[in-house]
């Protein structure tokens, strides 16, 4: 065979592999780590899963802010357990990502160097206790809408991680809503605190569900691979439709003068989102981007000698064990 012919059969072979692969996904079969997969599938998954993992661990920071200041012991343990879960979720997701042949340290490097993205919402400050309520209620609410469909995604390790995440996350949103209820049933000062938090977190929560469909670059491919089951705009509408009645129950006003129930569509109409702000924050110019990264990088760097010591100790113990075995 000529070289050209050889190349040709090579290309044909990979095309048919790819066809088989796509067919497996259509058939709802799971893809497992050592299975053949198109390079683009691998890369896309590394990007999405690691972004998700980064969001979990950066997300620990705004809430971690309030652990020492929680107003009651009950709230303190709930918040602590919640932030701890986020560390756990980050860990499950990094592990899922590692099955694609990238190490956690490489992923950290990408985060710390600013190469990797994480959810823009965590670049907003948590300035009152009510923000703990608003984050649980709105941010976790939006996250759940995003995450539940991922329990059926095509990549096995990601789907399994998401099942665990969703199971554990069910208390997070309830925790947040309960905080909001206590505030709304409380004094005037507390109600104002709750309203203020809703005012500040509402729009960022809507942005969190991603750019509108007409500018979202990854949607079509992601839908095919079941990395996404609904478009950003559909998710956003679902979030608004389910959250507005909850705000009514709390007696809070959603900060959108254009928000209105539309009998015809069976959905809420809502006002224009300030996408300029969204892109600013994504590009690193949100109120807390720098603080969040300083915290992450600082913790990692301050931990270097600790991690090194643990490795050195493990190696010493291993040598000791081997010497003992030799001596016998």
């Amino acid at each position: 065979m000529s070289e050209a012919q050889l190349k040709n059969t090579g290309a044909e072979r990979s095309r048919s592999l790819e066809e088989i692969f796509e067919q497996r996904i259509v058939n709802d079969e799971k893809i497992e780590p050592k299975d053949w997969m198109p390079e683009k599938y691998r890369k896309t998954h590394i990007r999405q899963i690691s972004q998700h993992a980064h969001s979990e661990i950066v997300g620990m920071l705004p809430e971690g802010n309030w652990i020492t200041r929680a107003p009651s012991l009950r709230r303190k343990v709930a918040l602590l357990a919640k932030v701890q879960d986020e560390a756990g979720h980050g860990l499950y997701l990094y592990s899922a990502c590692e099955t694609l042949g990238v190490s956690r340290d490489e992923l950290y490097d990408q985060l710390h160097s600013g190469k990797a993205k994480y959810s823009s919402i965590f670049n907003y400050p948590t300035i009152t206790w009510a923000d703990m309520g608003a984050i649980g209620w709105l941010v976790d609410g939006a996250a759940i809408i995003n995450q539940v469909p991922l329990c059926n995604t095509s990549y096995g390790p990601y789907a399994r991680a998401m099942i665990r995440v969703c199971k554990e996350e069910s208390f997070h949103q309830r925790q947040g809503f309960e905080i909001m209820m206590s505030l709304c049933n409380g004094t005037e000062v507390q109600k104002q605190m709750a309203q203020d938090a809703l005012n500040r977190w509402w729009w960022p929560s809507l942005m969190m569900l991603g750019p509108t469909d007409d500018v979202s670059v990854h949607t079509a491919q992601s839908m095919k691979w079941k990395l996404k089951r609904k478009t950003n705009d559909e998710l956003r509408q679902q979030f608004i439709d389910q959250t507005v009645p909850q705000a009514d129950i709390l007696g809070l006003t959603v900060p959108d003068p254009d928000l209105k129930w539309n009998e015809e569509t069976g959905h809420y109409d809502f006002g224009e989102i300030d996408w300029e702000e969204f892109w600013q924050v994504v590009k690193g110019h949100g109120p807390c981007n720098k603080e969040r990264m300083n915290d992450r990088v600082g913790a990692w760097e301050r931990g270097t000698w600790v991690r090194d010591a643990a490795m050195a100790h493990a190696e010493k113990q291993q040598i000791k064990k081997e010497n003992q075995a030799k001596a016998v």
């Binding site: 971690g64 020492t68 602590l80 357990a81 560390a87 860990l91 913790a299 990692w300 931990g303 600790v306």
Partner: peptide, 22 residues
């Protein structure tokens, strides 16, 4: 210990220290 949550040397140690705190 609660102060450290999110700022420890590794995710695994963060989770462990939080457990003790809880």
């Amino acid at each position: 210990l609660g102060e450290l949550c999110g700022h420890g040397p590794s995710l695994e140690t963060d989770i462990a220290c939080t457990n003790i705190s809880l």
